[in-house]
Design a protein around this nucleic acid. Structure first.
Lengths: 341, 341
DNA sequence: GCTACGATTTACAACGTTAGAAAGATTTCC
DNA sequence: GGAAATCTTTCTAACGTTGTAAATCGTAGC
């Protein structure tokens, strides 16, 4: 079936025999060992090309104790934010010659714990882990015997590397932007009452900080609860503010899906965006740029998060023993039509 | 750092020594070889538990020539359809004890070709490949020396397994549903003029088939071109039909994003959905269920496609030499508010 | 008690690669 | 010209697992 004769693959031994050198010399050529006579290198290279030799990675992995694969554990690819994060991580990994194995935790606590001790960890050199359900109490479970980089905010102060977006400052900037546009009655939608450390709480904190910095009183009536951060929730939140009769001239959706849903509901009520109500989101998912009007949002530095996570992880895999790092990605405000003056 | 003493992992040798049996017996226990005395099995199991032994997968891979990893090559995870497909494939693989390595081709022809011969193929037992740019001319490139299952419609008649959705019949059913609801002037948006074999062409074909079956004349003015299947394109298509003055009482978006964009534009024009214009999509992405009104669509059997692809691939990996299969997944019509009577 | 025949267990040799050190070439320097 | 230094190449063992075949055990049949 494959071009080159026998069923089994071509090995270094075959190449060595064809080139008239030892196996180790072939290995040296393949691995760019510096001290090789040009003539030898060429001889070997020719044999490799002629025989169509491909390295057997399992053998190399066994010998070196490395696989070149990193794990990425996240809630679900169906959620646009995580799909885009995975996209970025895969690209960043590819640039560095690594490959990514994705595991979904379905936002289930037990599943998140399982991933940490799964047999799959044998197959990966390290793990990038984006938990949604684990909290400070689970810190011990994260003390694993392999390199791990944790994404997101839920677990602080542990003994591991942490790469996160700047939820507080990002939210502050989003709010400040609305204030700069003359808005004073800013509804924030998608809040989670019970939570102290999740993205919702941190973003609401940023919102409050911005209000305070501008001497605008905080009105609890403008903080709208909303569980799942879906479009439908966003629409529902807006329906509720409107029904409540509370006045507002702007909406801060704690993520883009909420903001998009909000715009939809505003539209349904013939409320002009951004004329009457300005809207801003958070995450910069692709749809935000295609909505109408296009949505102003905070870009959380997804690419940077992905690249940094991979770099930190690679350093740990290579044996780096520096103190654990906490990296906070740079965010940026993407101004679009939904907050045009 | 890890609980069990020395840096290096526990091996079968350690377990064998602790249990007082040979390495092979440990291997037999681990692999559920039937002829093992219960007492022995228990002894070994206890040693395994005590030492916290985990199989070294690289070693097994080397010995068996299998990795337990399958590759999944798709355009981009940022596209919701592919993110959801990847989700389904990963779940299906997990159910069967496999693990998935995702590679993105960025919808780039060269990149799609590269994936087929990448060094990564050494790491996977087989490949599930969803090409977007390769066409019938590239058939030779798909004759690879490892198990491969091709998704999608672009390449027919080759010597490989093929799992695909039923674009023609699905589109026919979507159109028929609109006809059943009394619609006669159905605009179809997102068509690709040049294409003969892509999803766009096949779905338009299904649309025409349904019209013909019901004796409704085909009006080319109702077929609206649209390149990228994004929400913005859908909105734009609707703007164009409206501007053209052509009458219509329904819109068939060739995918959900187009349909959602269409609903948005209709809304902007104060056109009632489904009262004045009914809308139907294709793909059943998650947003379709959260839109307002919720979107009627064709569910292309994503789960089934994923499961079937994995099953076929596993059979090939196991050495199945049956003739190549072509599986067409069952679709279903999901009726929602956008086509309510 | 002895033989035969499964049931269990073991010894040994791979799987294809690379680390480490030794061996062989070649060059450099007096 | 010879010794030392350096560059190249080779040799020998692993890495941890499983397939094969052979060894050992246990017991049923006579």
């Amino acid at each position: 079936m494959n071009g080159s004769g026998t069923r089994g693959a071509v090995t270094m031994h075959d190449v060595a025999a064809a080139a008239g050198v030892s196996v180790k010399t072939v290995s040296n050529v393949v691995n760019d060992y510096p001290h090789i006579r040009p003539a030898t290198r060429e001889k070997v290279q020719r044999a490799i090309d002629e025989l169509g030799y491909r390295m057997n990675l399992s053998a190399r992995n066994l010998r070196q104790g490395r696989t070149g694969i990193i794990g990425l554990a996240l809630p679900e690819l169906s959620l646009p934010y995580f799909a885009e994060l995975a996209d970025s991580v895969i690209r960043a990994a590819e640039d560095r010659g690594l490959v990514v194995l994705i595991e979904q935790t379905s936002a289930d606590r037990q599943h998140e714990l399982d991933v940490l001790t799964s047999e799959r960890r044998q197959l990966t050199d390290g793990l990038i882990f984006s938990p949604l359900e684990l909290g400070p109490d689970d810190a011990d479970a994260l003390k694993v015997p392999y390199p791990i980089v944790v994404l997101g905010e839920r677990i602080f102060g542990g003994d591991w590397d942490h790469v996160t977006m700047n939820n507080v400052d990002g939210a502050r900037a989003a709010t400040q932007h609305l204030i700069d546009r003359g808005r004073r009655r800013i509804a924030v939608i998608g809040a989670h009452a019970g939570e102290a450390m999740g993205s919702a709480a941190l973003r609401v904190l940023g919102y409050q900080t911005a209000l305070a910095a501008n001497g605008i009183p905080f009105d609890p009536d403008l903080v709208i609860e909303g569980g799942l951060w879906h479009r439908a929730t966003g629409a529902d939140c807006v329906e509720r503010v409107i029904a409540s009769g509370v006045e507002f001239d702007a909406v801060f959706g704690l993520n883009d899906a909420l903001a998009l849903g909000a715009m939809h509901a505003l539209h349904a009520h013939r409320i002009d965006v951004p004329g009457t109500v300005a809207v801003v989101g958070f995450d910069d998912i692709e749809d935000a740029a295609y909505a109408s009007p296009t949505l102003t949002t905070i870009s959380p530095g997804r690419e940077q998060i992905a690249a940094t996570a991979i770099d930190v992880l690679m350093a740990r895999i290579a044996g780096d023993t520096e103190p654990f790092r906490r990296v906070i990605a740079d965010f940026s405000l993407i101004e679009r039509e939904s907050t045009a003056p």
